[in-house]
Design a protein around this nucleic acid. Structure first.
Length: 179
DNA sequence: CTCAGGATGATCT
DNA sequence: GATCATCCTGAGG
């Protein structure tokens, strides 16, 4: 699952032709207090216990959507930020923001820019409307502590393309990623 | 049935 | 940095 989180960095993600390069991810797994799957399977988190390579989409704070890629049972990788590449004008309209740097900087922003909603929960990310291509060249990577959570936040499972200007926030407690 | 509390983001100070 | 908007889920009575 950590391997998936790093492999996705530099990958190209599009939904209906809109998207860009994944520059920030966060990993969650079953025996992880911060994970939605920690207390077992429920109606809401069922996708996390389904087949791998599917989307787990959930609503955050009542207003935002967040997109995850499901790995093995009960673990998933949260897509936190993209470098916008495809359909930038469409993203600007959806976000009502002009600065490219801010279009997909954060899980909620990214979902708004790509028009991800709860009805995509459980869909395969290997078939339309998704399009996922692994990177031609592996980018330099950095990891740090996860953010926005109160439990088990010290785990260094937040991954980012080193030096990317498109991150949701700067990496904290930075460390090396050795593949 | 009630109800607290989020894997957030925009805005204000 | 603090606040708040706003929706469920799932835990507890």
């Amino acid at each position: 699952m950590l391997a998936v989180a790093t492999d996705l960095l530099g990958a190209s993600l599009q939904i209906d032709g809109i998207g860009g390069i994944i520059v920030e991810t966060e990993a969650y797994r079953r025996d992880d207090e911060a994970s939605h799957s920690f207390r077992g399977q429920t109606v809401a988190n069922a996708a996390m216990f389904g087949s791998p390579a599917r989307a787990y989409v959930y609503r955050s704070y009542g207003l935002h959507w967040c997109l995850n890629f499901v790995c093995e049972q009960g673990s998933a990788v949260l897509i936190r930020a993209l470098e916008p590449v495809y359909g930038i004008e469409t993203m600007r309209e959806r976000r009502s923001v002009s600065e490219t740097r801010k279009l997909c900087s954060g899980p909620g922003n990214l979902c708004k820019a790509l028009s991800v909603t709860g009805n995509m929960n459980g869909l395969s990310v290997l078939a339309p409307p998704f399009s996922l291509e692994l990177p031609a060249a592996i980018p330099a990577m950095t990891s740090g502590v996860r953010i926005g959570i109160s439990k088990a936040a010290e785990r260094p499972w937040r991954f980012a393309v080193t030096g990317s200007p498109y991150l949701s926030k700067p990496i904290r407690m930075e460390r090396n990623v050795t593949d």
